[in-house]
Design a protein around this nucleic acid. Structure first.
Lengths: 133, 133, 133, 133
DNA sequence: TTTT
DNA sequence: TTTT
């Protein structure tokens, strides 16, 4: 079990790229506000890198923009790469498995509204069926 | 581990009552929309009974109203009681441990805004401290 | 968002049935212990009805037995049916979307071990791929 | 909302230190195995840094050892520090809010068993009370 | 019995 | 750098 649930806002428009095999990958940083701790604690936030694959990446690229409020479900993943100085470096990202829009209508690139059908995606639920007992 | 996370809207204003020992208990039903399943599937929802105790109950009584969009964290609890016909009956409720307001400004009873300090409560986070290594 | 995570033990072997269209449905009750509350509080538990569909239902039917310890991810669903006395009755169930075996080797029906490949199922993760940036 | 749930095993004994103000902080790395992806994919895991504060830190220091299987609930936190070369570096950690032991009895340092009362801690649940309606 |  |  490796499960993450985050509510926050995009700090910038998503970037969408493609792997050599043609898979879409979207990425952005999510600002997740911390709970107030009484004192005026200058509204702290964690800035968490989000990565999204495939069709979900494309939908996000089309509908999310800087400031959009989303509810993300995913998992933590740690990637390593070699720094220029030869040392091994680690990046921690949340791989999103589903993304839900939340209330607040932020400005969108297109000025348009999000179609009802695109408000929630990534883990469809099968239609209700009679349970045979 | 018994953990529940729900995003939805109150189907009515919360009811707040008090136990004989003076503890506050709030309750309401949360409408949680299901994911679309392609077909026009007439916007299905689950209507989930929520129960909240103590100070959190009072805050909810003060700020939440019918239609408010919230993000709830809690646990499933099964209570049993004796029906009038003598049989044992079970109720399943979600005991909320924390409640967060979400974007969409629905009409409020008071017409007033939710104070910033009341937007999220139930599991405060201690201020950041230096980790000693 | 309608997400549930439960850790507990089956109170009996799963029952597997089939819908008229041939879909498998497994069901069982999960005993989820509550957190101790200091006093000897006689080890309380919630007994939560679990429902599982399709291939996952069959795997569960094959490997889970009374006493097996599992970690379940799913969603709350409320079903209604008509009682014999004509009134409407509601049942709350957790629809499991993934099931993970946990440590404790309980007795199994077959006396055999759970094959490594069956220890966790319901939400496979694609193999790691280079992120193109 | 910033919620993480992880099941995995400690890759080493926890380290417990103290801040200048005397608060305990425990830390260790949790190995969280990924879901199989069919192929023999050489049992991949994510190695996730866990940080625990206060009393919970001390309990963990006393009972957890390398190999212990645990279920952790917490939140993602990003800390920044200045590298020796003057650049800003970021560390991502999971701050654990509750820890539950899981089945598998791994070898312990002490050779002793975990007392029942220490099996789960960090988010106690109040004893059941009559709901006044 | 239900929310948007 | 890593657990079973």
């Amino acid at each position: 079990m490796n499960k993450v649930i985050l509510a926050g806002r995009l700090t910038k428009d998503p970037e969408v790229r493609y792997t050599q095999t043609g898979k879409a990958v979207a990425s952005f940083t999510l600002a997740v506000n911390r709970r107030f701790t009484k004192e005026k604690d200058k509204q702290q936030a964690d800035f968490i890198p989000i990565v999204i694959w495939d069709k979900l990446a494309e939908v996000c690229g089309n509908y999310l923009v800087k400031g959009t409020q989303v509810l993300i479900e995913g998992r933590i993943q740690i990637r390593n790469y070699d720094a220029k100085d030869g040392s091994k470096r680690y990046v921690t990202e949340v791989i999103a498995q589903s993304v839900e829009f939340m209330g607040s209508k932020s400005t969108t690139n297109t000025g348009g509204a999000v179609p009802e059908a695109a408000k929630s995606f990534g883990s469809e639920i099968p239609p209700d069926e009679e349970i045979p007992f």
